[in-house]
Design a protein around this nucleic acid. Structure first.
Lengths: 350, 350
DNA sequence: TTGAAAGCGCTAACAA
DNA sequence: TTGTTAGCGCTTTCAA
C-alpha cells in the first residue's frame, strides 16, 4: 500500500530485528504472525520491516521448508497457441496459493526437455506441468517419484500418469449435432491434416485431432441416420486447403447444405469460395469451424460459428490436478475437458 | 545421457560424499570441476553422484552466491501475442547462461503487478523483464536499485529506464516506400484504432501504434511528393473495419492503386471487399498489412505482404540488455528494433 | 513473552 | 590433495 522507496540493497531479517531491538527469533515470529509475541513487539517489528523495505528471502525459507511454492512448466509449443491459455488458466488457479511458474521451452527436443527437467528439479519445483502442442500422446517423462507431474493438452502415453486433454471426439459430434439442429441434413466434412508420418509440422498440425474430430462427426451423423455429403478429404489445416476442398465439392456437384471444417482456417477458406460463387451463408450452406480462434472466427463475414476447445479451462483443471497431487492426492489417467459451441451467424437455423 | 532411474527422494551432497568416501568439501570441488582434486577422487565422486541421481540444490547455492540465475518476467499481455515471441527470444538468449524464467501475469492490473513484483523480488531474481502489450509508454516500476529492469514492447515513460520497443514510425514509412517501389503512386491508408480515451481494449489495440505508423507513412509520402489517396480514417484494428473502410473508399470514388492497412486484420477485410468488387490484387490495387500475423498473412488469397515488427528479435535484444545490466553494464533509454518487410503476392510490382 | 542455538544444503576459506 | 569449519538467511525447538 504505502509508497515504498526501494533502498540500495536488501535488508535481512537480522537487520530488521536489530532495528526493532529484538532477537532474530522474535522478529521471525512477529512477521509470520505466529502467536506468543506481544502486540507491542509485533508492531515494532512490522514497522522496522516496513522502514527497511524488508523482503524475505525465499531461498532461505525453502531450504528449511523443503518446498518452493513454485511449479515448473515445460512446453514444446513454440507458438504459444496452447501454452498461453493453459498457462493463464494455471496461473489463475495457482495464484491463490501464491505459486510462481518457472517456464522452459523444450521446442519439441527431447534432450532439451531433459535439460530443462534437471534444471527445474534442481530448483526444487513442487510440481511439473508438461504442456504439449498436439493431441497425440507423448512419451512419459522420467521424473523423481516425489515430484508430481501433470500433462496438459498432449497426454502422456503412460495411462498411470495424470493427463488433461481436450475431447476432440466430442467436438466433432457437437459440430454435426449443431448443424442438424439448424435443420441441415446434407453435411459435408473438410478434414485437416492426415499425415500419418511424423512429418507434421506446425502448420500441418496433428493428424490425431483430425481423426478424433472425424470419428465424433461420423458417430453423430450415424446416430441421425445420415452419411456425410461427398467424400471426406484431408490435407492441411490451412485456408488454402479450405478453398481447394470447397471448390472440389462444388465442382463435383456434391449436394450439401452445411460444411464442418476441422479448423477455423479451413472454414475461412471455405467461406471465401462460397462467397465467390454467390452462395449464401448460412441460408444455402452453413459453415462451422473448430478451435474458435479469436483472429478468425468472430469477425468473419458472416461471423463464424466454431467449437472452442477451452484451452484455458484445461489449464485450470491441470493446475488443480497438480495442486491435488502436491497435496498428496494424485490423479491418474487422462481427463477430458469438454469443448463448447460458440454460435455465430454462419450457422443460423433455417 | 545415461538412463537415470529416479529414486524415491533427493540425495544430498553429504550422501554423495559418504558414498564416495570423501569429505563434503572434496565432493563439492569434484562435482564443480574445481582444481586440486585428484582424478581418481573426482571419478569416484562423479560415480557416486550418478548412482544416487544427485541433483544439486539451487536454493542452497544461491543462498551463498547471492544470485539465482533466473530472471522474472511480468507481463500484461493476456493473449500472449507479444509476450510469447518475446519470451521465446529472451529464452534463446538466456539459455546460454543457464537462466530460468519466472513468469507472472499482471493482466494490466497495477496492484497485481506490485504483488508479482514482491514475489519475484523475494525469489531474488537477477533481473526483471517487463513485457507490455502496447506501444504506449507505461509508468516506471519502482524497484530496488540492485535489480536491473528492462521494459520490452511497451517502453517505460521514464527515459532513464532501459526499454526495447518496435519502431512503428519506420514500419509506416517502409510500407509506403515498398508500394512506391512497386510503381504505385495513389496510395490510400486505412488506419487502426484512434480512441484517444483510455477505452481501448484488446480488440481495439493501441492508438499510439496507429499514430506512429501514420506518421511514418506520411513522411514517406511527402518525401516522394505524394499525398494519401482519399481521407485517412481510424476506427478499429478489425477485419470488419477493413471491409467498411474499403467500401467507403470505393463508394466515394477515391482513385487509388494501393492500400496501406495498419493491421493484417484490416488488410484481410480490405482484400475481401476488393475481391467482391472484382478488383484485381495486386494488378489494380496492391494491399499491404502490418504485423505479419501467421494466421492471416501467408495464406491469404493472394498471400498478403506485411511489415513484421520482429517481436522475437525484441525479446533477444531485451534479454541481451538485461544480461548486460546484470553484468554491470546497464543500458538507458529506449532502443528501437527495426521491422522487416515480408513481401508476398499482394504487392507484386506492376 | 523472549532469546540462544541448531541446522536446512551448499561453498569457500583455511588448515592439515 | 584432502578435510575442517564457518556461514549464506531463515525457522524452529528449547530454555530462560
Amino acid at each position: 500500500m504505502a509508497a515504498v522507496t526501494h533502498g540500495a540493497k536488501k535488508a535481512t531479517l537480522a537487520e530488521v530485528a536489530a532495528q526493532a531491538g529484538v532477537s532474530l527469533a522474535t522478529a521471525s515470529k512477529a512477521l509470520n504472525n505466529q502467536p506468543h509475541v506481544s502486540d507491542a513487539t509485533r508492531k515494532r517489528v512490522h514497522e522496522a520491516a516496513e522502514q527497511l523495505s524488508y523482503i524475505p528471502n525465499a531461498q532461505a525459507r525453502s531450504l528449511i521448508s523443503g518446498h518452493t511454492n513454485s511449479i515448473g512448466v515445460i512446453t514444446s509449443d513454440l507458438t504459444g497457441r496452447f501454452c498461453t491459455p493453459i498457462l493463464l488458466g494455471a496461473e489463475d488457479e495457482l495464484g491463490v496459493t501464491s505459486n510462481t511458474v518457472l517456464l522452459c521451452n523444450a521446442r519439441g527436443d527431447a534432450l532439451l526437455e531433459r535439460n530443462h527437467l534437471s534444471f527445474l528439479l534442481s530448483r526444487n519445483v513442487d510440481g511439473l506441468l508438461i504442456v504439449g502442442d498436439e493431441t497425440t500422446p507423448r512419451p512419459h517423462l522420467d521424473t523423481p517419484d516425489h515430484v508430481p507431474v501433470v500433462y496438459a493438452y498432449a497426454p502422456s502415453a503412460d495411462p498411470n500418469d495424470c493427463s488433461i486433454a481436450c475431447d476432440n471426439v466430442e467436438a466433432g459430434a457437437m459440430a454435426v449435432n449443431h448443424l442438424i439442429s439448424c435443420g441441415k441434413r446434407k453435411i459435408a466434412i473438410i478434414g485437416g491434416s492426415d499425415t500419418t508420418a511424423g512429418a507434421h509440422n506446425l502448420r500441418l498440425g496433428s493428424p490425431k485431432a483430425s481423426q478424433d474430430r472425424l470419428q465424433g462427426a461420423m458417430r453423430a451423423l450415424h446416430e441421425a441416420n445420415l452419411e456425410p455429403a461427398g467424400p471426406v478429404r484431408f490435407s492441411q489445416w490451412s485456408e488454402s486447403w479450405g478453398r481447394a476442398a470447397t471448390r472440389l465439392l462444388l465442382d463435383q456437384n456434391v449436394d450439401f447444405d452445411a460444411v464442418v471444417c476441422q479448423s477455423d482456417e479451413i472454414a475461412r477458406g471455405c467461406m471465401s469460395v462460397l462467397h465467390d460463387r454467390g452462395i449464401d451463408i448460412p441460408g444455402q450452406v452453413a459453415v462451422i469451424g473448430h478451435d474458435n480462434r479469436s483472429l478468425l472466427a468472430p469477425d468473419a463475414d458472416p461471423p463464424l460459428t466454431s467449437i472452442d476447445n477451452c484451452t484455458e479451462e484445461i489449464g485450470h483443471v491441470a493446475a488443480r490436478a497438480l495442486l491435488d497431487a502436491i497435496n498428496g492426492k494424485p490423479h491418474h489417467g487422462t481427463e477430458y475437458v469438454s469443448c463448447r459451441l460458440v454460435q455465430r451467424d454462419s450457422t443460423l437455423p433455417n
